[in-house]
Design a protein around this nucleic acid. Structure first.
Length: 427
DNA sequence: TCTGGGGTCCTAGGACCC
DNA sequence: TCTGGGGTCCTAGGACCC
């Protein structure tokens, strides 16, 4: 049985999540801001129509937000993560052969059938997701992932297609690709788009017809794979099992400039705690720990400083207290007083499975069973009652440096007070 | 006052070895 | 004055994705 890829892509995902719990947002211009209320990262169709650009700094947009009555929200990742899980679980009703590609996108592997039947099936997926989760999606179907992505964009852009487009075995494939801008092809970013344009390649069809050797030379083998995919030769396969992360990064910009070492140490402890939790979720441990700090590069009139430091851990670890200690030691090495810092972060690399840690003869009986039990308890409590319910003292109590999230919607799906208390009758 | 936070893969070039 | 060639490993940097 011939297979095709279906890309299911949530429309304006973060805005749609806010709308599910607040229907008054329907029909209104709504935007969601990045961490620290920095820039626009999601826009409703109404907001796009007002010309609000993706990535626009929020402080420069305030006038327009007020003028047009745009509703503005801080990002609420606890909510979006939960809604994403619901969408993905619903998609599993259609096929188990599914790749969760990002928080708002999934590739499905489907049995190919006639154009009419595929389109009908796409409409069913769209209908069920909307019905069960409240999230509107677009569905693009194609013989390769790259073509499915293109089909998805076309389905979104043309209202008469009602969010579903099947490009597989389309009789007018080349005509469609000729109307599709090369910069919108998956894998072609701004740099490659400019390069291609300089060489007269403006559309997906022209890229499809480009010479292999030229493409490989200028766009590397990845670019050549994209070209093959445009020709209908599948080079990017369905990755059903998420690969364990090779590096875990955790960093945030501060809500205000930070100068004191003590506060920087709190921030580092906080980011280590996040990263270590992710590490434990994938049952792994990290061998190398990087720490960095930066001043605000946009403030050109202030003295600038940035540095990083790295250490190899005696034994790969996911035990938060040990990682905090190492990270804070690294921070002390690179900290210089007299600067106004904007951001710190940690990066864990050389990640290995927890059950295959080579124990170090110099550090016997490590990690201690007690440590693992403690981490399990912490993770369990935070999963049940919400992030940061229990945390490490080193993370600080007030966290005055913490990022701004002044426009946050309620935690509709994780707030403990929303869970009804059910009295269990005595039997 | 205010400009996000993660990730991936590939290539070139240097260090080092024989 | 001349100063090969091939291999590996590592790092930095550049491109992309959402």
């Amino acid at each position: 049985m011939k297979k095709v890829f279906a890309l299911v892509d949530c429309n304006n995902f973060y805005v749609s999540c806010e709308r599910v719990f607040n229907p008054a947002l329907e029909g209104r211009a709504v935007v969601v801001l990045s961490n620290n209320d920095g820039c626009v990262i999601a826009r409703s169709e109404e907001a796009k129509a007002l010309g609000i650009k993706m990535g626009a700094p929020a402080f420069k947009m305030e006038h327009e937000f007020r003028k047009y009555g745009v509703l503005v929200y801080s990002s609420n990742y606890a909510l979006y993560g939960d809604m994403s899980d619901r969408v993905m679980q619903t998609l599993e009703q259609f096929t188990k052969r599914l790749e969760v590609y990002s928080i708002d996108e999934a590739f499905l592997s489907l049995n190919s059938s006639s154009h009419e039947e595929m389109t009908e099936y796409g409409r069913l997926i769209r209908y069920i997701i909307k019905k069960w989760t409240g999230i509107p999606v677009a569905v693009g179907i194609g013989p390769t992932k790259t073509l499915a992505k293109i089909a998805g964009k076309i389905g979104k852009k043309n209202p008469q297609l009602k969010g579903v487009f099947d490009i597989a075995n389309h009789p007018r494939m080349d005509e469609i690709l000729n109307a599709f801008p090369v910069g919108d092809v998956w894998g072609v970013g701004p740099q490659y788009e400019a390069l291609l344009k300089r060489h007269g390649i403006l559309t997906a069809l022209q890229l499809k017809c480009a010479q292999d050797a030229w493409v490989k030379k200028h766009l590397t083998v990845m670019g050549l794979r994209t070209v093959m995919e445009l020709r209908g030769v599948s080079c990017f396969s369905l990755e059903e099992m998420p690969m364990a992360k090779k590096g875990i990064m955790s960093s945030r910009s501060f809500g205000r400039p930070v100068e004191s070492l003590d506060e920087l140490k709190e921030s580092i402890a906080t980011y280590v705690a996040y990263a270590a939790e992710k590490l434990r979720q994938q049952h792994s441990a990290a061998s190398i720990l990087h720490v960095f700090l930066l001043t605000n590069r946009f403030k050109t009139e202030e003295p600038q400083y940035g540095n990083s430091a790295t250490t190899i851990l005696p034994v790969p670890s996911s035990y938060t207290p040990d990682l905090i200690r190492s990270a804070q030691e690294l921070l002390e090495k690179i900290y210089k007083p007299g600067y106004r810092y904007k951001k710190t972060g940690v990066f864990l690399t050389e990640i290995v499975p927890q059950d295959r840690i080579q124990t170090n003869l110099l550090v016997p009986d490590y990690p201690h069973e007690k440590n693992r039990t403690l981490m399990k308890m912490v993770d369990h409590i935070n999963a049940r009652w919400g992030p940061d319910t229990v945390r490490f003292a080193a993370e600080g109590m007030e966290k005055e440096w913490h990022m701004r999230r002044n426009l946050l919607s309620p935690r509709f799906t994780t707030q403990w007070s929303e869970i009804p208390i059910v009295k269990i009758p005595n039997s």
